[in-house]
Amino acid sequence: MFDTITGLPVHPLVVHAVVVGIPVMAILTILVAVRKNLREKYSWWVAGANFLLFLVTLVAKESGEALQEAKGGQLAIEHGQLGSVLPWFVLVMTAASAAVAGTSKNRALGPIAVVLAILSSVAAVYWTVRTGDAGARAVWGS
């Protein structure tokens, strides 16, 4: 299922959505978290989009594992190890954005959710860059 689409490996096709999607959603997550007017209108939409991004990230992980297995298991080992953790970063960002939406009117928990959304968004972008760099180095050389 995660091998190929019309003969092309799924991983390089889907990974671009992850590489673009995570930074974009991280920025939107932070913006919606810190701006009250945006939070009231868009926080559940951002949480939903983050969940969809989490699913795409899982597809990227599974397709990467399928590609690595098809190439004999020795392709981009560090990249694969980093990539297997990336969906967890996106899941935490998703949970934090849902917490922002769910606590937007709560004076005690709202600020904690905002801080978690900011930290998880920054961490997700950092891990995406780290994972992508390891993959690029494995494929294109140092």
Rank of each mutant, 00 (worst) to 15 (best):
G73F: 08
G80P: 05
E78A: 12
Q74K: 14
Q68H: 12
G72Q: 08
S63E: 02
S84A: 14
L58S: 00
S84G: 15
A70D: 10
G73C: 05
K61P: 00
G64V: 10
Q74W: 05
G83F: 01
Q68T: 15
G72L: 05
I77L: 13
L58Y: 05
A76L: 10
L75C: 01
H79K: 12
K71T: 12
E62L: 14
L82E: 11
V59P: 03
L55V: 15
A70C: 02
E78F: 01
A76E: 06
G83P: 08
A60R: 05
L82C: 07
E62T: 11
E69V: 06
G80V: 02
A66V: 02
E62N: 12
A70P: 00
G72K: 07
L75W: 15
G83D: 11
E65P: 01
I77M: 06
G83H: 05
I77D: 04
L82A: 11
F54C: 10
V59T: 13
K61M: 15
Q74F: 11
Q81H: 14
L75T: 08
L82M: 14
E65M: 08
A76Q: 04
E65I: 08
K61Y: 11
A60V: 07
S84F: 04
L55K: 09
I77W: 00
A66S: 13
H79G: 08
G80C: 08
L82I: 08
A66C: 04
Q68P: 01
L82N: 12
K71I: 00
G72N: 06
A70V: 03
A60D: 11
Q74G: 11
G73Q: 10
E62Q: 12
H79Y: 10
L75H: 13
T57K: 03
Q81R: 12
V59N: 04
E62Y: 14
Q68C: 05
A70M: 06
I77S: 07
Q74D: 13
G80S: 14
L58P: 00
G64N: 04
F54Y: 15
E62A: 15
